[in-house]
Amino acid sequence: MMDLAKPDQFDLDRLAEELGALPDAPLAMPVQRVETPPQPGGFWALLRPRFGRMGKAGH
């Protein structure tokens, strides 16, 4: 028997870590896309300022 009320008897952290270690079996979990960035065109195109892209007269 070990008296866990006296933690200096042994290293609890290490023991718990060793005995509790998860199986080493990694699995990828790719991040999903859930937000839609504003799309060019459609409604957003109407709101976009156009002053900078006015066609030039002449050449």
């Binding site: 866990l4 609890l12 952290d13 023991l15 718990a16 870590e17 005995l19 509790g20 998860l22 199986p23």
Partner: peptide, 21 residues
Amino acid sequence: ERIWFLRLLADTHAEGRIFYR
């Protein structure tokens, strides 16, 4: 948690079946 995890393992003889991280 760590103390009671060890108690749980001892109680259930579940080393290798119950993990803690």
